[in-house]
Amino acid sequence: MKTETVIESSERTTTVRYTPENYDAYPPAAMAWVDGRVIERNRDREAAAHALLLFPFVSGRLCPARGCGVDVAKPLRELFLPRNVLIEGVEMAPARIPTGTRTAIVCDGSYRSAALLKTRKADLSFRLSESAYTTLIGPRNVVVASNFGVFANQEGQLNILVPAIAAALLFCEDLGIVRLVLPVHDLTAEEAELLGRLSALLASVNISVETPLLGMDFAALSRSLPDLSGLEIFLAERHEHITCVEDLPDFWLAQLLLAQASGDRTATTQARDRVKILLRRGCRLSAGEQDLLSSAQSASNGQVIAQPDMKSTT
């Protein structure tokens, strides 16, 4: 896949153009774009962003127009394993690696993102929006109008975040970001592997990755959730297509966690039933969330579920 970043100043957009080659898949849109101009364009971060954005579509070789440094080439190649992807344009000469000071939470609008705001102090929240017409860049919030999101073509908490990470990477130097916090809690084995490779790639361009919720007990996670009204505001702002947060599985999963934490059986049953209705309507849960639902089901059937952490909160 040949890739190139083009700044279209008249349109105030930054575009990633690509040309699929022999083994590549064709991405879903004619080009990828973010609304807003990226000022500082580090060659290696740009190559890493291209690789992440086009991760599901690259096979054979990756040719970033500006090449990449030798220290980035290896993690770039390994990102695609078990695909054997050759990296073109590798420069041996040493090059500057940007740095920064700020920590950004990459937000996906999930209840996990809401919990992360309390769990991990961060300088700013970064998210993509497909429906916003302009990018909002403020000191604490960055909402990037973009079509990057449509490039995620697999389910999974990490898989759907990857385009947002690619976009964040493009803006990292401008915004002084040096650390990305990801709202992942429950990954498949394949995603866990990918997280390792992705972290290695970002590390090679001076960006560290944190996943404070990963593998955390649900009871502990529930303690980081905002209260009901806070949750409603959080979700409503980040899901612009809905009229009612009660249509979101994330709302009811959070409610389920809060109800279990407070020992409220009625609220637990209500939240569990609502998640089940949403499941019948096609919503998808991670394996951990399915276990959570099963445990709520068992509890309402009269079985005692051992939840040591819960005891301390009830």
């Binding site: 879903p28 849109a29 004619a30 080009m31 774009w33 497909e130 429906s131 079509n147 999101g149 449509v150 995620a152 073509n153 612009e240 297509h241 809905i242 009229t243 249509d247």
Partner: peptide, 29 residues
């Protein structure tokens, strides 16, 4: 998969389809 990402805006009681197609066109699909 396009419609899984670009959803109808439920706030528009009518013609949410126009808004959807507008966004899909803007995305370069």
């Amino acid at each position: 998969r396009v419609l899984e990402h670009y959803r109808y805006n439920e706030n528009f009681l009518v013609d949410s389809e126009y808004h959807l197609l507008n966004r899909i066109a803007r995305a370069g699909i």
